[in-house]
Design a protein around this nucleic acid. Structure first.
Length: 630
DNA sequence: CTAGGGTTAG
């Protein structure tokens, strides 16, 4: 035994082969996902002159892949080459995978092209292309793989479930949907749709492309489902705004005997936030505590968001204050919460606090900050923050920020400034930017700028009826009847129809849904009696057709049986005094109702929160038959 | 080589 070897065995007292002992430690660390520690250990290993073998590198490469460390990866690659012997398939597939995960798919391909490849290397390269969203590259390689499989030459190549799974997961944006559909066909032809993991990846693929119906079809055809399947479907519905479907699938899941985990509850919580379903949200919170997920930062943020959106700022703040580590996402949730409900000052204070606590603001949090300013009428402070965004934090404002600032200026009546801001934009304004301007024109009755805004907005979003309605209303205010009929003709030509407006209130875990003039609710009689009473009380304090002072009170009290009014009457009938009432509205809250709600709130001394759910999609998932919901 | 996760105006 050489002196070196003796010294080595003394330094680390392993049983027989020192390399095996080191490798075992690496395996342990890798299993426990302690990737940084694995790399540190490797540094120790190098210092104590050991000889890495074929089992050493895959663990280390996996660590680099997870931590996305391209430099460390290429160093390791050099070490692999230095060992002299040809790398085995496992090491090569790890190299390919690591380069791909570091977004270096060209390097990965170089490794791939060095020699003939067995199945795992093909799979690694295919999944690498998918990871970098290059599904066409992946498909080309798949074709090559099939040819080699058929030739049956010296290397063992077999298309397997992992191959298809990797291919499918590469089509996770809508632009790649066509390829995804073809690959779905491949999965069927090759007999892999029955494979659980493959089917799961198909569900996920469709969900990410925004095709929830197709995802649901795959989901329904599956004979076996595991936790991943349910989660893919639940979070898929949640991400695409189909909040009610989330709750449906969740209860189906509970019936099927699969128990939920943190990911499931996250999807459910986000659905509750979008529905304003605080009661269900509370139940889920209890479930979270019971299952011991209370510390999960994802869930805590979702919880803060849910309470904030439902108007329960006290509870949102409690949960927020009690979370230990606060990320930008946590701050965004709480800032947005105060912003939505008009507490702009608090939102800005929180933002400053966030900066002080050394959390770097991102683009998203600025959207919340700017919109908080515009909700609270803090025009100039909003503009300051907008400037700071680029100057102080180096964040390029996107169209989503410009639309907030246009809204900010627009609400303050500074329409020309808003127009100039749009003209000065470096990025192309989207529909939302012009739409915000159009909305401002409605408030300040400026038909001229409205026409300019409308021209742009119909070009960008020709099917968004909201804008047609807005312009038509602006013309109505300006007594421009010719304009009104022109817009009507446009809408008819383009076959656009307005969705019926409806409102709903969550009560005892059920959605109570109302259309305007609705007579189908079981409590209809009491509701209308209550509404009559409210109307006469309101007329007492505020005689009809009398204009009021101030911006939001310019409006008259409408006499129609609006869905919001029915929802409020229902809530007053059924809930205890002192509790807040959250009413959800699919379209913008009817202007006639603003004052009505405000006055009723004063008269009965209850707080109402009417949430504008315009941007949520759940009104599209067929809330049509009210019977299912009460 | 291997499927699921929080925040975003109008």
């Amino acid at each position: 035994m050489s002196a070196d070897q003796l010294r080595e065995s003394a330094a680390a007292p392993p049983r027989w082969n020192p390399t095996t002992a080191w490798n075992n430690q690496l395996r342990q660390l890798s299993k426990q996902r302690q990737y940084r520690e694995a790399l540190t250990l490797y540094r120790h290993m190098l210092r104590s002159s050991f000889f890495p073998n074929t089992f050493t590198f895959p663990f280390l490469l996996k660590s680099c892949a997870f931590l996305s460390l391209p430099l460390a990866a290429s160093q390791l690659h050099a070490h692999v080459i230095r060992t002299g012997s040809q790398p085995d398939p496992y090491t090569r597939s790890s190299l390919i995978n690591t380069y791909a995960k570091c977004s270096l798919h060209h390097h990965a391909r170089k490794v791939f092209d060095e020699m003939p490849n067995p199945t795992i290397c093909y799979n690694a390269m295919i999944s690498g292309y998918s990871f970098n969203s290059k599904p066409l590259h992946a498909v080309c390689l798949f074709r090559k793989m099939r040819r080699e499989e058929e030739d049956g030459l010296d290397v063992d190549v077999n298309v397997n479930a992992v191959t298809l799974l990797s291919l499918v997961s590469g089509c996770s944006v809508a632009t790649h949907l066509t390829i995804g559909v073809c690959l779905h066909g491949c999965c069927v032809r090759f007999g892999f749709v029955t494979d659980l993991a493959v089917a799961n990846s198909l569900v996920t693929m469709y969900v990410k492309c925004g095709e929830v119906e197709l995802a649901r079809k795959v989901f329904d055809e599956m004979l076996v489902r595991d936790l991943i399947t349910w989660n893919a479907m639940i979070s898929g519905y949640a991400q695409n705004g189909h909040a009610r479907c989330v709750l449906e699938v969740y209860s189906e899941m509970k019936l099927s005997g699969v128990s939920a985990d943190a990911v499931t509850l996250l999807g459910v919580m986000s659905a509750c936030a979008n529905l304003g379903a605080q009661g269900i949200g509370r139940e889920v919170e209890r479930e979270i505590e019971r299952r011991g997920f209370g510390c999960n930062p994802f869930l805590r943020n979702a919880l803060v968001n849910m309470y904030a959106r439902c108007g329960n700022l006290t509870r949102a703040r409690e949960v927020f204050d009690r979370s230990g580590e606060k990320s930008v996402v946590s701050w965004t949730a709480i800032i947005g919460g105060y912003g939505i409900h008009g507490h702009g000052e608090v939102a800005l204070e929180l933002f400053d606090e966030m900066v002080e606590s050394a959390v770097r603001p991102d683009k998203t949090v600025f959207v919340s900050v700017l919109s908080a300013c515009s909700h609270a009428g803090l025009t100039d402070r909003g503009l300051e923050y907008f400037k700071e965004m680029e100057r102080k934090y180096g964040l390029q404002p996107g169209p989503e920020h410009y639309s907030c600032v246009v809204d900010l200026l627009g609400r303050a009546g500074r329409l020309e400034e808003a127009v100039n801001l749009i003209k000065s934009m470096k990025v192309k304004p989207d529909g939302a930017v012009w739409g915000a301007l159009l909305g401002a024109c409605k408030i300040h009755k400026n038909a001229e700028i409205a026409e300019l805004a409308f021209q742009h907005v119909v070009e960008l979003e020709p099917t968004n009826i909201g804008y047609y309605v807005l312009l038509s209303n602006i013309y109505t205010d300006a007594n421009n009847l010719e304009g009104v009929s022109r817009v009507r003709v446009m809408m008819r030509e383009r076959k656009l129809r307005k969705d019926p407006g409806y409102s709903y209130v969550e009560y005892k875990g059920k959605m109570n849904l109302f259309y305007s003039g609705d007579l189908s609710h079981p409590q209809t009689k009491q509701i209308y009696r209550m509404l009559d009473e409210l109307e006469s009380l309101v007329k007492e304090v505020h005689p009809p057709n009398e204009k009021c002072q101030g911006r939001s009170e310019e409006l008259l009290i409408g006499t129609g049986v609006h869905s919001e009014k029915l929802a409020i009457a229902f809530a007053l009938l059924n809930t205890k005094s002192g509790t807040e009432i959250t009413v959800m509205k699919n379209l913008r809250v009817c202007v006639d109702c603003h004052l009505f709600i405000k006055l009723v709130s004063k008269i009965v001394n209850r707080q109402f929160i009417v949430r504008d759910a315009t941007r949520f999609h759940h009104f599209r998932d067929g809330i049509c038959s009210c019977k299912d919901y009460w």
